[in-house]
Amino acid sequence: MNRAGKAGAAVLAVAALVAVLAPLLVPADALDVTRVTDAPWRPPGAGHWLGTDHAGRSVALLVLQGTGTSLFVGLTAAVLSVGIGTLVGVLSGHFGGLAAGALLRVTDFFLVLPSLVLAIALSTVLPRGLGTIVLAIGLTSWPSTARMVRAQTLTIEARPFVERARALGGGHTHVIGRHVLPSVVPLVLVNATLAVASSIVAESTLAFLGLGDPTRISWGALLHQAQLHGAVPQRAWWFLLPPGVAIVVVVLAFTLVGRALEAVVTPRR
């Protein structure tokens, strides 16, 4: 793995650690609006490294707290989307025929729809909550994975060793399980890493638009709050910048790791 990839992996390790340790790092009272004693809109300084928000809560603690939600949504939505994509891709690639045609048309349908608009529509219709966000992102971002997995499945299926497996008497399960999946998995892993990055961005967007889970703090939700309570007229850059930078850094880290993995699993010839 190259140096950029290693740096990305290190950032992700730190972020994961923060997400796991957040309950220990952040005192329960510090984020409760009714119990906070500090003045609102305080700029960064002693006591509050990153200043305070409209209710006097520490922005630094809010960002730490938001890490878990953002990573959780990013990971689960990516797993969902890549899972659906792999299933559709392998099935349509392996079976062909009418069913595959139908699956492909469905893929095309989702591919041409602007996925953000669809996600917004879904999250307004479904009950508010983390599950809805994951579902909205997962259900709208799988088509590209499906296309890629299908292409890979088709190349593998054309290889003589699959014909040999058939001649040995191997059925669909055998061909898919022993030959197609093992060669698709590395690609899928790379794709999943990149999908996490885009899912985090999607989650932030939805939360920023106020469609997130109102009971949880995520980076996108922080930006939504900042916007809602007038951080811009207050010139409270310290409320906008930290969650934004956190999103950029983590997304960049996932992308770097994904690209590095890509270079590992697809060797240049």
């Binding site: 003589p160 060793f161 040999r164 022993r178």
Partner: peptide, 9 residues
């Protein structure tokens, strides 16, 4: 098959 290199996974 003809080409053993591609007939083996």
């Amino acid at each position: 098959l003809q080409d053993p290199a591609s007939a083996l996974n």
